[in-house]
Design a protein around this nucleic acid. Sequence first.
DNA 1: CCTACCGATCGGTAGG
DNA 2: CCTACCGATCGGTAGG
Lengths: 187, 187
Amino acid sequence: MASIQKKEAILVAAAKLFRDRGYQATSMRDLAEAVDLKASSLYNHIGSKEEILSDICMQNADRFSAEMGIIVQTTNSPIDKIKALINLHIEMAITDYTSITSFNDEWRHLSEPSLSEFTSKRKLYEQQFLEIIEEGISQDQLKYMDPQICLNTILSSTRWVYDYKPKAEMGEAANTIVNMLLHGISK
Amino acid sequence: MASIQKKEAILVAAAKLFRDRGYQATSMRDLAEAVDLKASSLYNHIGSKEEILSDICMQNADRFSAEMGIIVQTTNSPIDKIKALINLHIEMAITDYTSITSFNDEWRHLSEPSLSEFTSKRKLYEQQFLEIIEEGISQDQLKYMDPQICLNTILSSTRWVYDYKPKAEMGEAANTIVNMLLHGISK
DNA sequence: CCTACCGATCGGTAGG
DNA sequence: CCTACCGATCGGTAGG
């Protein structure tokens, strides 16, 4: 019988396997074993392997979009918005450290129309982020630089957090990262 | 007939396919087609699919190690060594923008003993990088911060350069990235 | 370098 | 939810 909890368990197990081995290298038999089922029984809960990947990617994309929506609507300065966004990326990497790798790396195995749906959500998010950076530059809060290069560097810079071992110290790590990006490492 | 040029052509084509689709999603038939051969003929030039991945990863690892060796031996200050290393990562991402993704992401599909050989090379490289950062902190050239977090952030921060479109402007991009990491984005 | 082919494994379905 | 099974495709080999 198809229960929502079971589907959720499948998504969680899949995110972990995709993270450890990658989407392509994870078989439906691997996944079935992880949730104590036979491969064929998975299809009572999900439509296809790709649907699992799609669900995981969209969940993450939607969460990023939602948080961006909140941040954009505040009256905070551009630099405070950027701080909030960097912290968001770190937060996501800590709390959702399995599924974030699907969002970051495995989405490219999606086919149409999921692929376009995902990339356009991501594009929108990055566009909003870019505008905040441009605002920061024009308001003289940020140095003058190519906003796209700035954005790319920020987005990449937290892409190790999900497999950082000492999770307990992540609060401190977040501060260090924000400080690095805002003020640099040089004294 | 097995020629060295043909093997090199196979490695180049493989790096491109691994970059575009990932290692697991690239079949030997895809690769064969890319070099105008039948799949079985590939085996006159290479031992196995994994050997191709291993060769690509090791080539990159060895180049990073060699450059690190040169940088370490200079009498430059820690901060100048770090600048040189950031530029090295950008340089590699530009000149070798296909194979760098194998080095970054696909190496995990290696099996033993290649896997250990690769990870220990990488570990050594990161250890040397870490020592330069620690030296920079103790010489008061860098702010006091967790050196491992600093290293991870630096290493991640250039991991978008390989698919940056305007290759012509990469020189400027490199300066922007170095500047961001050393002095931050805040004014 | 190719044709022909191997066993293993893949995602997924039928039928109960 | 399982057993049984499908066609397709995988990496790789034999033999010439």
